[in-house]
């Protein structure tokens, strides 16, 4: 593994090796990005095994379209978008994206800044997993990936207003969950 890491010291060398179909580069690519990309897939799909399948499919897409990468922007950002699209495609094919418009309004205000140092990534992943698929998808795209509402609407085939309402409801639910966790932790 050390030897493989020494072969590809920067992103450009890795891309060139992947463009040549180098098996070592492909293995290095898996070793370097699989954990991070699996986390992305889990955020969208809420299922570890299915997320692994989507991650592998996304990696195959990366290898197939590696020649389309012209060096504009970061390679990881380009790859991240491919993996995200693969996850969204899986959600679309399984009709997992159901926009819940009847979610309850939460009026409780939570001071997130005061509790964030006590929450770990695993805790936040559990909170995201509890969100409905539509909420979670829009929140992931907007809050974490940095998509605009227009882009989300284009990707999911919904209106921008629907995307905004879904994001708002997702935030409210997450705040509620954070307050509950904060209360439990304070009790402990």
């Amino acid at each position: 593994m050390v030897r493989i890491l020494q072969l590809f010291t920067n992103e450009g060398q890795l891309v060139k090796a992947l463009q040549k179909g180098d098996p070592k580069a492909q293995r290095y690519f898996y070793e370097k990005y699989s954990a991070r990309m699996l986390a992305v897939c889990v955020r969208y799909l809420n299922n570890h095994m299915e997320a692994e399948d989507v991650m592998i499919e996304g990696f195959m897409k990366v290898f197939e379209r590696i020649n389309q990468y012209k060096g504009e922007g970061s390679f990881e950002g380009w790859m991240h978008r491919l993996i995200t699209n693969e996850a969204l495609m899986r959600l679309r094919t399984r009709r997992h994206i159901e926009m819940d418009i009847d979610a309850p309004e939460i009026h409780q205000h939570v001071h997130v800044e005061s509790v964030e140092h006590r929450l770990e990534a695993d805790d936040l992943m559990v909170m995201l997993a509890k969100l409905p698929t539509g909420y979670r998808t829009v929140f992931n795209l907007y809050a974490i990936e940095g998509y605009s509402h227009a882009e989300i609407a284009d990707q999911l085939g919904i209106n921008e207003s629907t995307s905004k309402s879904q994001l708002h409801r997702a935030r409210t639910l997450l705040q509620q969950m954070i307050s509950e966790v904060e209360g439990l932790k304070w009790k402990v």
């Binding site: 898996y30 699989s34 954990a35 991070r36 699996l38 986390a39 889990v42 955020r43 570890h48 997320a51 692994e52 399948d53 991650m55 592998i56 990696f59 997130v112 964030e116 929450l119 770990e120 990534a121 936040l124 992943m125 995201l128 929140f139 907007y142 809050a143 974490i144 935030r171 997450l174 705040q175 954070i178």
Partner: peptide, 24 residues
């Protein structure tokens, strides 16, 4: 909330199983 989740989960990692590598 967006800030908290973005900062904590952007670079989050979940180690795949060995079966995932074999499948790959």
């Amino acid at each position: 909330v967006d800030e908290l989740f973005s900062r904590k989960l952007r670079d989050a990692e979940i180690t795949p199983r060995d079966e995932a590598f074999q499948k790959f």
